[in-house]
């Protein structure tokens, strides 16, 4: 719990700091316009940028809400991004699974989510820049319950998901960005929101 709280606080302050720094730099350069921003060749703004991203979403939740016991489940992320200036659309697929057992009983599930993100990137031409995002998505899962060797699988209905995110992007190479994002999810099938931390790598296609 302490780790999650510290991580969240550190992320929040880092996000505020970078947003402030980015805006300050932007207002200085745009207000006085004494020296034009020097962009590298690879940083020249294109009208539309396309990228693919892979990541891990670490979800902090309890096996039963209100329990003192906490779990961190990791979900695997695959995303496609279309970006025009400050705005980006991300189509994201997330796969997660988990298993719990006690004696002769074991319960496992596999879940697939499809999320549509809208992101606003502050000063995206900067190597280090913050962004905010909102998502609407769908999810479904399959739960397998095994008791004394007898197994049964149940397919869920399709649920809605909603999410908000704040992240920091770092351009490590000319076509590669590293993302660190804090998310808050509301899954229709879960009573309370859950938080997660996404770490992902984004690759921009050069010749799109």
């Amino acid at each position: 719990m302490r780790f999650i709280r510290n991580f969240t606080q550190a992320f929040f302050f880092a996000f505020i700091f970078w947003t402030g720094v980015s805006f300050a730099e932007e207002s200085i350069t745009s207000g006085e316009a004494k020296e034009p921003v020097v962009l590298l060749a690879s940083e020249e703004p294109r009208p539309l940028k396309l990228a693919i991203q892979l990541g891990l979403d670490f979800r902090f939740e309890e096996p039963v809400n209100t329990s003192d016991q906490k779990d961190t489940n990791q979900a695997y992320e695959l995303g496609f991004l279309l970006q025009k200036k400050n705005w980006a659309l991300v189509e994201e697929l997330i796969y997660s699974q988990d298993e719990s057992s006690g004696g002769v009983l074991s319960i496992s599930y596999q879940a697939l989510e499809w999320n549509h993100w809208v992101q606003y990137h502050f000063v995206p031409e900067k190597r280090f820049h913050p962004y905010l995002g909102l998502a609407l998505g769908l999810s479904a899962n399959e739960v397998t319950t095994k008791l004394s060797g007898v197994s049964r699988s149940d397919q869920s209905r399709i649920y809605f998901n909603y999410a908000g995110a704040a992240g920091i992007s770092y351009r490590g190479f000319s076509q590669v960005e590293f993302l660190c994002e804090l998310r808050v999810w509301k899954f229709e099938q879960k009573k309370d929101p859950i938080s997660s931390g996404l770490l992902s790598v984004r690759y921009f296609f050069e010749n799109y």
């Binding site: 096996p63 988990d98 719990s100 006690g102 599930y109 397919q155 869920s156």
Partner: peptide
Amino acid sequence: EPHLSESGHVWIPMNVD
């Protein structure tokens, strides 16, 4: 607050707890 999945007319618990 149990974690449940809806499958037709049945609630399916998603973990042992």
